[in-house]
Design a protein around this nucleic acid. Structure first.
Length: 189
DNA sequence: AATCAGAACAACCGCTCGAAA
DNA sequence: TTTTCGAGCGGTTGTTCTGAT
């Protein structure tokens, strides 16, 4: 597996951001030949990229059915539910979100949801006297996988902190964590 | 207007699994 | 049955963008 570069071709493997030209080459090649074996595809298409890199680029950005940006509240809720069920099985979770990729969901989780869970934990630790205010939501953790128990968002007085990840075009679209968690409770069992 | 910090995104790396030889 | 190779997955890192000071 770990073959070291042993010829000049291997030595000039490109890394880093994809250029528009590379994207076009990959798209055209797949349109004409199909996906096939990624390593040989990369070679045949004349791309100085690894098969892995081509596969990732295709699956995450170039596929025609890939949806990008603006994770909806519904999708976020689904992600949370599925993550509670399966943990970090991003590809499995992604299968339930048409057009979304595991990489996108993983990034979304790490950069947004996880951050807010951490904050929630902080608030829970600091203001435990307020925790009872959210006593109902604190039961959520009993419904999730033991390996991935969320700290319930005991965010009394800090609701705005939790609205960041959600669409804010209008108030109707603004889902609070409370909404999400209560929905999760309903769907929990 | 410039600088800094944090957030978000894109891509790579290492590992595991399964299929084929 | 064992070995090899490719695909896929999850974690991590690097880069870019955006907002605050």
């Amino acid at each position: 597996m770990d073959k070291k570069p042993c010829n000049s071709q291997d030595a000039e493997v490109r890394k880093g951001p994809w250029t528009m030209e590379e994207d076009l080459i990959l798209i055209n090649y797949i349109a004409n030949h199909g996906e096939g074996v990624w390593n040989s595809l990369a070679r045949s298409a004349g791309l100085k990229r690894t098969g892995k890199s081509c596969r990732l680029r295709w699956l995450n950005y170039l596929r025609p059915d890939v949806r990008r940006g603006n994770i909806t509240p519904e999708e976020q809720l689904l992600i949370m539910e599925l993550h509670a069920k399966w943990g970090n099985r991003w590809s499995k979770i992604a299968k339930h979100l048409p057009g979304r990729t595991d990489n996108e969901i993983k990034n979304y989780w790490r950069t947004r949801i996880q951050k807010h869970i951490k904050q929630a934990e902080t608030f829970a630790g600091q203001g435990s006297e307020h925790a009872n205010d959210q006593a109902s939501t604190s039961q959520i953790s009993t419904t999730v996988d033991a390996a991935e128990t969320y700290s319930p968002p005991s965010y009394s007085g800090n609701m705005e902190t939790f609205q960041g990840p959600f669409p804010t075009e209008s108030n109707e679209n603004l889902w609070s964590m409370e909404d999400l968690w209560s929905m999760q409770l309903l769907n929990g069992d």
